[in-house]
Simulated scan of single mutants.
Amino acid sequence: MRPSARIPSVLAGLALALGGVGLAAPTAHADIQSCQDHVQENGTDVTDAVRMACYVGLVGDQIRCAGGLTDIGVAPATAIEACRQAPGNG
């Protein structure tokens, strides 16, 4: 395929992918919120570090999510439960 013919195909694929992300974003936000709420309910203020750890949990890395939360002082059991809720499993 010529490079000039590939460009429209790549742009069309990118537009479809970004459209799908836009449709999934409200659900993702709610899942991150559940994670943050659990942390806050158990005595830790929601900071950028908490938000980042919850995001890492959302994308499926539960170990890094829990590790990030415990690194900032969240109790291990609270961190595990919050990260379990991040991808919407809770």
Rank of each mutant, 00 (worst) to 15 (best):
A28M: 14
T44N: 06
T27P: 13
M1N: 09
C35P: 05
I63L: 12
C65N: 06
C65V: 04
A25K: 14
P3C: 04
Q40C: 01
D45R: 12
R51M: 03
G43Q: 08
A24L: 15
S34T: 06
H29A: 12
Q85A: 04
A5H: 05
I32R: 15
P26R: 11
C54K: 01
T78L: 02
S9L: 13
P3T: 07
D61W: 05
A66T: 10
D31E: 11
L58A: 12
N89D: 05
Q33D: 10
P87F: 02
C35I: 04
H38T: 07
C54N: 01
A25L: 15
A12M: 08
A75T: 13
I7P: 06
L58D: 07
G20I: 12
R84M: 02
T70Q: 11
D31S: 07
P76T: 00
M1P: 11
Q85M: 10
G60Q: 07
L11Q: 07
Q33T: 08
V56E: 14
V46W: 05
L14C: 03
A30R: 12
P3N: 09
H29D: 12
R2F: 09
T78A: 08
D61T: 07
R51E: 13
N42W: 02
M1F: 06
A17G: 09
M52W: 13
N42Q: 13
G19F: 13
A75F: 10
G19S: 13
V56I: 15
N42Y: 07
G22M: 15
L69V: 07
S4D: 14
Q85D: 01
M52R: 12
A30H: 02
M52Y: 14
D31L: 06
A49P: 04
T27R: 11
G57E: 09
E41W: 04
V21P: 00
L58E: 11
D37W: 00
Q36P: 00
A53D: 02
D45H: 07
A30Q: 11
A86H: 03
R6Q: 10
D71H: 09
Q40V: 10
D48Q: 05
P8Y: 11
N89S: 08
P8H: 07
A82Y: 00
A66K: 08
R84K: 05
G43S: 07
C54Q: 03
A79F: 14
S9D: 13
T44Q: 08
G60P: 15
V10M: 14
T78E: 06
G20K: 09
I63Q: 15
